[in-house]
C-alpha cells in the first residue's frame, strides 16, 4: 500500500523538483549579476558620501556636491533595492529547495532582511543630512557609514552563499523528501539569531543613548525581530497548502509542546520579576520602556533554543 503511494508522490516530486530547479537557477543568475553591480554601486556611493561630508566640513561647494551625486545615488538605491529583493527570494528558495538546516544560511537570511530595511533607512538619513548640514556635520553620517558596512557585508555573504550553492549543486533535489522540517528548523535558527541580536542592540541603546532618545526611537529596537516574522510567514505560506493536522509529524508536535511549556514557564517567571521590580524599585522609567522588547526577544530565544535542543537528537546523519 505504501509503495504505490510513495512512487506516485516521488514521480510528482521529480517533476516539481525540475521546475523548482529552473526557477532557482534564474533567480540565482539574476542575483549574481545584481550583486556585482551593487558592489560597484556601494563603492561609488561611498565616494559621493565622502565628497558631501568633506564639502560640509570645509563649507564650500556643498550644493554642487549634492547636485552631482543625486542621480547616481538614486540609481544606486534602485539597484540595491532590486538586489536585496532578488537575494532574499534566492535565499528562501534555497532553504526550501535544498531542504537542509543551516545556521550559516539562516544568518545570511537575517542579515539580508536587516540590510534591506537599512536601504530605506539610508534614504531617510540622506534626507536628514540634506536638511541639517547647514548646522554642521550631522551625526547621521555615522549611522550611514555603519549601514554601508552592513550592505558590503551582505554582498560578500551572498557571494559566499552562491559559492556554497554552486559547490552543492549536484545534490540539489536528488533526495526526495515527502515531509520536510528544514524550513521550520531554519526558522528557529533565525529566531535565535534575531533574539540575541535584539538583546545586544537593546543593551547598546541603554548604554549609549540618553533615556529620552531611546524612548523616542523605541520602534527601531524591534527591527531585529522582523527576519523571524518574515520566515514564519513564509513557513505558514508553504504549509497553507496542507491540512493543519499534517503540518507536523508526531515527533515535531512532541518537541513543539515541550518547547511551548518551557516558553510558558519563562513567561510567568519574567512577568513576575517585572511586576516585583515595578512595585519595589523607586525609579522604574527604564523598566517601563524596555520590558516589552526584552520580553519579546527573550521569549523567542527561549522557544527557539528549546526547539533546537529537542530537535538535536535527530540532527546527525545516518
Amino acid at each position: 500500500m505504501y509503495e504505490n503511494n510513495t512512487y506516485s508522490v516521488m514521480d510528482s516530486f521529480s517533476g516539481r523538483s525540475k521546475m523548482q530547479s529552473k526557477k532557482f537557477m534564474i533567480i540565482k543568475n539574476i542575483t549574481i549579476l545584481l550583486s556585482i553591480i551593487s558592489f560597484l554601486c556601494l563603492i561609488m556611493n561611498m565616494v559621493f558620501y565622502e565628497l558631501i561630508r568633506k564639502a560640509i566640513i570645509t563649507g564650500t561647494g556643498v550644493e554642487r556636491s549634492f547636485i552631482n551625486a543625486q542621480y547616481f545615488v538614486a540609481a544606486a538605491f534602485m539597484i540595491l533595492f532590486l538586489f536585496h529583493l532578488a537575494a532574499i527570494i534566492m535565499i528562501l528558495l534555497d532553504l526550501s529547495f535544498f531542504k537542509k538546516e543551516s545556521i550559516i544560511k539562516s544568518f545570511i537570511f537575517f542579515v539580508s532582511i536587516i540590510s534591506f530595511l537599512m536601504v530605506f533607512g539610508d534614504f531617510a538619513l540622506l534626507g536628514d543630512i540634506s536638511k541639517e548640514y547647514i548646522f554642521g556635520l550631522p551625526d547621521e553620517f555615522i549611522v550611514l557609514y555603519v549601514s554601508q558596512g552592513l550592505h558590503f557585508l551582505f554582498v560578500i555573504l551572498i557571494f559566499l552563499l552562491i559559492g556554497i550553492i554552486n559547490k552543492k549543486r549536484g545534490l540539489a533535489g536528488k533526495e526526495v523528501v515527502v515531509k520536510d522540517e528544514s524550513v521550520f528548523i531554519n526558522a528557529q535558527y533565525i529566531g535565535l539569531i534575531s533574539g540575541i541580536s535584539g538583546i545586544l542592540f537593546l543593551i547598546s541603546c541603554i548604554i549609549f543613548l540618553p533615556l529620552w532618545a531611546f524612548q523616542k526611537g523605541l520602534g527601531v529596537v524591534f527591527l531585529a525581530i522582523i527576519p523571524y516574522i518574515i520566515i514564519i510567514i513564509y513557513w505558514l505560506a508553504m504549509k497553507s497548502r496542507e491540512k493543519i493536522r499534517e503540518w507536523y509529524d508526531e515527533k515535531q508536535f512532541h518537541d513543539l509542546t515541550r518547547a511551548a511549556l518551557i516558553a510558558l514557564v519563562f513567561s510567568i517567571l519574567f512577568n513576575t520579576i517585572i511586576f516585583i521590580l515595578d512595585r519595589t524599585v523607586s525609579n522604574t522609567d527604564i523598566i517601563k520602556i524596555i520590558w516589552f522588547p526584552l520580553y519579546i526577544y527573550l521569549a523567542v530565544i527561549t522557544f527557539s533554543s528549546s526547539m533546537l535542543g529537542f530537535n538535536r537528537s535527530g540532527a546527525l546523519r545516518e
Binding site: 505504501y2 510513495t6 533526495e175 515531509k179 520536510d180 522540517e181 509529524d249 515527533k251 535527530g314 540532527a315
Partner: peptide, 15 residues
C-alpha cells in the same frame, strides 16, 4: 529518508 517518506514522517523522527 526513504522509510520516512514511506510512512509520512520526517527523517529526524525515524532517526
Amino acid at each position: 529518508q526513504d522509510l520516512a517518506n514511506a510512512v509520512g514522517v520526517t527523517r529526524l523522527t525515524i532517526h
